[in-house]
Design a protein around this nucleic acid. Structure first.
Lengths: 219, 219
DNA sequence: CCTACCGATCGGTAGG
DNA sequence: CCTACCGATCGGTAGG
């Protein structure tokens, strides 16, 4: 992480991870390897950033040689795009799932907001949650076409929030302009990626409680 | 910005900006040139990110040749650090100034919070505000020593918020845990760097009004 | 997916 | 601060 000090050079063909058995016939098993690349890229892009991660890093993480990721992806940027697209699809599905479960028991918009917030903390900070932080903090490295192709998914995700916030506004529980409120709330949640430490800090439920208390007047 | 397409190569010694007169004797005027480098670096780091900005970009922006920035800074990382340190000192001074002006007229913590929020939007989004966004979004590129040297400045900045939030909590205007509330509020504000567009969106006063309405119950 | 490689770019330096 | 340069790294490719 200390990029002011250069790392010692690594030989190009890194050893496969210990314990990973060599395939008898051929190491190609298609969607499987592609998925492995996406997962490794998500982790590395999250930890070190897109620019500071080399395609060699990613290849080594899944036991490939330096040129092989380009068999699966045309460019490093396409790999970044794939991470974001997969992350958004999963986040949308997870959000829809959380909402559909709770809409059977209540339609109180305050409860729905709590569900959305709790789910977003899970997407941002829960186990294996590298994809959305990458999406949030590395979009600058996409080209225009790649960015445009994510806009639809992003607005699908946001679409679940607007009616809830409008209901809160109508009920007098939210004074702020709805559009600005959504942007400010997203910021409050998304920024947690920068400071949250699961070892030292509160639980995700604690965060949700604090956020609800901050945004809504006493129940 | 489209880093998937490589830019055409530039000759190393770029022409000086048109209209910049050549010094008769010597181009060295010390603190002046150093400051120019810091300002240009802040702009470029903000627009393109630290990793995507080369020291040649920065040199060209101030009419220097490629090796010359290293006469003023030991490394690219030291230049980044200088941007952040200068940004923090200015932000702290600006915040103290805004507070001292208003503390003559009121001690209502709601008003003080409005002052702090409005000032932070100015620091984040106002004219010439490249330094703090760089500080917020490029810290990962600092080494441990550089990061540590900023901690004191950051907590000086935050120190002005805690008593205000505690007063609001004591007065029943803030239900959430004070420490988490501060982190969430900072997130809401800091995230505006990602979406705010001065041409299309609200004014900084509008943002302040929306944030106050979101965080505090009706006055 | 591996082998062997290339062209470009980059941070940084010696010497003036 | 400029000149002239170096070693390292990087994204990407041809050919199998």
């Amino acid at each position: 992480m200390d990029r002011n000090i250069s790392a010692p050079p690594l030989p190009d063909p890194p050893r496969r991870p210990r314990g990973r058995p060599r395939k008898t016939v051929d190491a190609r098993d298609d969607g499987n390897r592609r998925q492995a690349l996406i997962r490794a890229a998500a982790q590395l892009f999250h930890r070190k950033g897109f620019d500071a991660t080399s395609t060699r890093d990613i290849a080594a993480a899944v036991g490939m040689h330096s040129g092989s990721p380009f068999y699966h992806f045309k460019s490093k940027g396409e790999l970044l795009h794939a991470v974001m697209e997969e992350g958004m699809r999963a986040a949308i599905a997870q959000q829809a799932d959380a909402l559909s479960k709770s809409e059977q028991t209540t339609t109180d918009p305050r409860w729905l907001l709590a569900i959305l917030i709790r789910n977003q903390f899970d997407v941002l900070l829960g186990p294996g949650s590298d994809f959305i932080p990458v999406m949030l903090y590395e979009s600058r490295s996409l080209n225009a076409r790649q960015r445009a192709s994510l806009v639809q998914l992003q607005s699908d995700y946001e679409a679940a929030w607007t009616p809830v916030l409008e209901a809160l506004h109508a009920a007098g529980h939210l004074r702020a302009d709805v559009k600005l409120a959504r942007l400010l709330i997203f910021g409050a949640l998304n920024w947690s990626v920068q400071w949250y430490d699961a070892r030292k800090d509160a639980t995700l439920d604690d965060l949700t409680t604090a956020a609800m208390a901050l945004f809504l007047p006493a129940a």
